[in-house]
Design a protein around this nucleic acid. Structure first.
Lengths: 259, 259
DNA sequence: ATCAGGCCTCACGGGGCGTGAGGGTCAACC
DNA sequence: GGTTGACCCTCACGCCCCGTGAGGCCTGAT
């Protein structure tokens, strides 16, 4: 058998990661060499280089190595779609950076001009999860900010594949079923069971938006279930009163857990 | 004594960090509360909020908590200058992100068009330390890229204070003294002693440039010591032939260590 | 034959918190 | 004046992602 390809050092140089990192990735099964020589040497081929690129992108975006592995190994994983999603996230990050730069400018102005700055304004841009809140601060409750959220959600989902949608559908279905049962059982919106479901709901929204939903937005989403006929139909069609029940649970959850 | 200020949770909400993180920062002495109640509660004031903001900026830029502490506690620390430096780094990061996005676009094109991509091109933008090399790839050796480096170096140094300069001066002086001695002793440019000094020199350049010097640039810097009369005067004034000796050592180091 | 410069496998450690366990405190309402 | 429930505290263990040797084999050029 002809052994060819790049050695660890070569891959390290190409990609900028350390040799130790490659060893580690091999250890945990994240990136296995194309083949291993009789001497135990690792050899990487083009496919592995591409996979490493994917890994680095995901890592750049803050995923854990385990998540990355699961994502890349999920069947139906679409490289093209994933790359597009990465692009979108990078754009979001650059937006966040711009926000940070503005925060710096504001702080500078406040330091030089001796004008006082609101406590909340000092941290704009640090927490990605709070980014949306700042946006909402600007346009007041409701308004166009919600639209922004939805737009970003769409941008994030651009990188998905059928299997992802299927999985998300399944989870949504499970949550709705649980909520329908809770409703029928007459559980209060803040009962442990419902709170647990809301936790899943929040995780679901987080995933589908590609970022944690801030409390206000989560609550607003719940209100949308009641207000928007398409949503209302969907929920009430499954179980009478489910839309309102969901909204109540989400509001309660938002107030209690995410405050 | 009147105890007032923000509690941990409040600070956590304002800044987006976890309560545990605040505890941790207190533990390691990075961010102490303004005062601690008789009950042991931590209370943070405006000054602490500002310090936390500084910490978050530094953290965002990848500094270790220890480094952050030392920087913030260094007397003569200039908030304004530091903020300006942060801005510069954020700009650099956005540039890197743009590079990453371009890499994505290239990869996408290569995936869709079935055209092959150079192995090196696949990783553009991942390793900040290699960023400069990509820049140099574009403008060929020497040229305007060097200028870019110098400009960025200046931008980085904008965030320094007198004490920093003093420390850097001292280190530079020590290195030069060591090199002068090595020269007098007739040590070859690749002797262990000299290599050790070069390691310090490289670290020094890394610090003064706020990022690791790529091999080509390090070598180029050495050449500048010979070519630029101001540098030449400085070195040869200390010890005849030192400029050339430094250049030779740096070139050798660049070739051997950083290749 | 030698020798630098890769390569390998352990194995320890360390930064930056997450995550309980176990237990006080405080404001508010009964 | 109790009882919540939401805070607060202090340990202390653990996890992730490697950095950093130590100790030893491979290999290609001199």
């Amino acid at each position: 058998m002809i052994v060819s390809g790049h050695t660890v050092k070569q891959v390290a140089r190409l990609s900028g990661v350390s040799v130790r990192t490659l060893h580690h990735y091999d250890e945990i099964g994240l990136l296995k060499p194309a083949c291993v020589g009789a001497n135990g040497y690792r050899y990487y081929g083009r496919e592995e280089l591409l996979r490493l690129q994917q890994i680095l992108f995901h890592r750049e975006l803050g995923f854990s190595l385990e998540e990355i592995g699961r994502t890349l190994d999920a069947k139906g994983f679409d490289k093209v779609a994933a790359l597009r999603a990465h692009r979108a996230k990078l754009e979001a990050e650059t937006r966040r950076y711009r926000q940070l730069m503005r925060t710096i400018d504001d702080t500078l102005a406040s330091l030089e001009g001796e004008t006082k700055m609101a406590d909340t304004a000092m941290y704009r841009g640090f927490d990605p999860a709070k980014q949306a809140e700042y946006e909402q601060e600007l346009v007041a409750k409701g308004g166009p900010a919600m639209q922004t959220h939805i737009d970003e959600a769409k941008a994030g989902m651009a990188g998905w594949k059928q299997s992802d949608f299927d999985a998300m559908q399944a989870e949504a279905d499970a949550i709705e079923a649980g909520m329908a049962k809770a409703l029928v059982d007459g559980l209060p919106a803040d009962s442990a069971t419902v709170v647990a479901l809301m936790r899943r709901q929040h995780a679901w929204v987080t995933k589908s938006w590609n970022k944690p939903a801030p409390a206000v937005a989560f609550k607003g989403l719940g209100e949308m279930y009641v207000g928007d006929p398409r949503f209302r139909e969907r929920y009430d069609g499954r179980q009478a009163g489910l839309a309102e029940y969901m909204a109540a649970a989400m509001a309660s959850f938002a107030d209690s857990q995410l405050s």
